[in-house]
Amino acid sequence: MAGKEMMIKIGVLGLQGAVREHVHSIRESGAEAIVVKDKDQLAEIDGLILPGGESTTMRKLIDKYNFMESLKEFARSGKPMFGTCAGLILLAKNIIGYEHPHIGVMDVKVERNSFGRQKDSFEADIPIAGIADDFQAVFIRAPHIVQAGENVEILAKHNEKIVAAREGNILGCSFHPELTDDHRITAYFVNMAKEAKGN
């Protein structure tokens, strides 16, 4: 019986970016969604999505009110985190051209805006290992993963560039699953949260 206590609750970091779309996608995937604007809300969720937006802006807002340490602690606790586009940049341990990472909990090196400026932004159908054969991926001034550590599972590539990967409880992708009606990656993440909660 799926009682209320069994319901998985996913937070979306709501400082800036495509928050509403992720909330919609989470609900479509059968989980409860909340917008996280305050670090105290992290205690009540089973997983956290870092949405697309401007990573530099989100970083400035994370640095206020000591949010950063709480986000690192959340990742260490084993609860799943999923970063899309700017969210992936926030998760990466290495960012080309930057001395320090942001949250820095995923063993990957990323390059910002690596497909070019907005006029080069595109959509393409790509296979994602274990999730979809034909995922309609929307890339907007997207980053990509230049290098992945040995414990990182590569889930998708586009034109030889790594665009989706998972390392344990951390999931990241270059594109924006929240901009389409295809909720398969979000459902995969909700399932990660369900498994983490079960253990």
Binding site: A18, E21, Q118, K119, I140, R141, H176
Partner: peptide
């Protein structure tokens, strides 16, 4: 490139900013 989704999506990423 240049689809409605890509163009409108770019603006979606600016939300709250």
């Amino acid at each position: 490139t240049g689809t409605d989704r890509v163009k409108r999506g770019m603006a979606e990423m600016q939300k709250g900013g």
